[in-house]
């Protein structure tokens, strides 16, 4: 494992931690998209089916379990916690799942490296992860007063993706025969989706202003 990959995973972990802490400390999930969290849950479930079939390393197994458990915790809080669920912006979080899930599923059925259930679901998770942030970005755009922590959460998620690109470049240069085109293209698409957000995040940070995204 190289430094970019480790830094990427740690940033991913930190992003989830920030979200858990924000919701738990403020007892509010204002500005957080339940749709994005549920899409991530679907991504993790489909991708980590190999927890049962394929042991890679202790690190790998523990991280997978943390990602699954933390995402399901957030969903549980947003749906069922008696204080937190009241703060969910249900009317604003209107992005439709099917617009993301169906195209990704079709693409995974058509474009995969092996036509088996495990492989198609794994590929589906790669495609879906690339676009799963969209409901969150739309919700942020509709939220007038973006919570610092919610902004940081999205920024950390975007940074994790950027670090993964560096990881791929590093691996491509150091490992013979290392190539994975589907993952690379999806990962690049995913990172591009964050560029607009990054622009406004850095601008607001520089000017010491509260983050707001233009409609």
């Amino acid at each position: 494992m190289n430094i970019f990959r480790l830094a990427g995973d740690m940033t991913h972990l930190l992003s989830i931690l920030v979200l858990l802490l924000k919701i738990n400390a403020t007892r509010s999930c204002r500005g957080v998209s339940l749709k994005t969290q549920e899409l991530y849950a679907l991504v993790f479930v489909c991708r980590y089916l190999d927890l049962f079939t394929n042991f890679i390393s202790m690190y790998n197994t523990i991280m997978k379990i943390i990602f699954l458990a933390s995402t399901f915790t957030i969903i549980y809080w947003m749906r069922f916690h008696k204080v937190i669920r009241v703060t969910y912006d249900r009317e604003q979080d209107t992005f439709r799942y099917q617009f993301l899930v169906l195209p990704c599923l079709v693409l995974a059925l058509l474009l995969n490296s092996e036509f088996t259930v495990m492989e198609v679901l794994w590929t589906f998770s790669i495609y879906l992860e690339a676009v799963a942030i969209l409901p969150q970005l739309v919700l942020l755009q509709r939220t007038n007063n973006i919570d610092n922590l919610t902004g940081n959460y999205v920024f950390l998620l975007g940074s994790y993706r950027a670090l993964y690109i560096l990881n791929w470049i590093y691996r491509f240069l150091t490992e013979p025969n290392y190539r994975q085109y589907l993952v690379w293209i999806s990962g690049i698409v995913q990172t591009i989706i964050y560029i607009d957000f990054f622009y406004y995040y850095i601008k607001s940070w520089k000017n010491n202003e509260k983050l707001s995204l233009p409609a």
């Binding site: 790998n60 794994w122 025969n177 589907l182």
Partner: peptide, 10 residues
């Protein structure tokens, strides 16, 4: 081969 390599990432 491609799929196997990718699966050590998260």
């Amino acid at each position: 081969v491609q799929a196997l390599i990718a699966k050590d990432e998260l």
